[in-house]
């Protein structure tokens, strides 16, 4: 009897071990291999990298490639990092503040405007924005070719999605909390910022992660709405090394590495908060 029990537990342990190994293997193939590939290409000479083979570099020049990428076009990459960071941080902040407020009101207060507002939110998701009229508008507001204009564009384009996330989540917060706050004498804005907003932390974290990746990686919008040499963003710098007739893969991949690493570091450091935020929400619901 006890022997069968032991074999059963041993089988269970083995199954878990195999499951874990498979998971690690899949993670390795999906995440680590591409990274290694980029790292290897970034270490090669141009002729060596042009074959794009998964092979050991004949000559290691990772450092000189990285330096070349940073120095290219008068240290453009550093400027691009500054611009991208400003745009991402400012837009995500704006998105979180505005979308949470809209989502809260839309869910809590029923009025005859709700239908129209919901329609507009959905329209924001479904109707692709037209580029030229948007630029005309920006020109009239004197926001074209400015970082704050770009921030407003990113907020406007991504607001709908964030509102939907918030609205769905607010529905899970009991109305009694609002009422209790009201009984204790909280003004409406205090109810929101001191009672509700902290409870929205899980969905706020989701929003920050999803939107900052989307905005940091955005290529098309900065291309059209933020022209000019001084307004370059990191995704646009990749095109310094890539064109139809000639691509410098070693420098391209060095640039990819440099562009990928900062968000990677941020997520490694804030991993605990991100996971904590998500699971906290799961328990509270």
């Amino acid at each position: 009897m006890s022997q069968t029990h032991t074999t059963f537990r041993a089988a269970e342990a083995r199954r878990r071990w195999i499951g874990g190994a498979v998971a690690i293997l899949v993670t390795g193939v999906v995440f680590v291999l591409p990274f290694l590939f980029a790292l290897l290409q970034a270490s090669k000479t141009q002729a060596d990298a042009s074959t794009l083979s998964f092979s050991w570099p004949t000559e290691w020049q990772l450092w000189s490639n990285l330096v070349a990428v940073i120095q290219v076009r008068d240290y453009q990459l550093l400027l691009a990092f500054f611009n991208s960071t400003v745009i991402t941080v400012a837009s995500v902040t704006g998105l979180v503040v505005f979308a949470s407020m809209v989502g809260y009101i839309l869910q809590r207060r029923q009025s005859r405007w709700n239908g129209l507002i919901n329609f507009l939110v959905l329209a924001g998701l479904m109707i692709p924005p037209a580029v030229v009229p948007t630029i005309w508008l920006l020109q009239q507001l004197e926001l074209f070719k400015t970082l704050h204009g770009m921030v407003l564009i990113e907020i406007a384009y991504n607001l709908s999605f964030s509102i939907l996330l918030y609205r769905a989540f607010v529905a899970t917060i009991p109305r009694e909390l609002d009422e209790a706050a009201r009984m204790d004498g909280a003004k409406p804005w205090q109810t929101f910022f001191r009672v509700i907003f902290p409870l929205l932390k899980p969905v706020t974290v989701t929003n920050i992660v999803v939107q900052s990746i989307a905005i940091f990686n955005d290529f098309v919008n900065p291309l059209y709405y933020l022209p000019g040499k001084d307004n370059v963003t990191v995704q646009l710098t990749l095109y310094n090394f890539q064109s139809q007739f000639e691509t410098q893969y070693n420098l391209l991949f060095s640039n990819v590495l440099l562009v990928t690493i900062p968000p990677l570091i941020v997520f490694v450091f804030f991993n605990r908060q991100i996971v904590a935020g998500m699971t906290a929400g799961a328990v509270k619901g």
Binding site: V131, V132, F144, K145, L223, P227
Partner: peptide, 10 residues
């Protein structure tokens, strides 16, 4: 990009 910038006089 070229067409957009010509159309918007930028």
């Amino acid at each position: 990009l070229v067409k957009t910038r010509l159309a918007t006089e930028e």
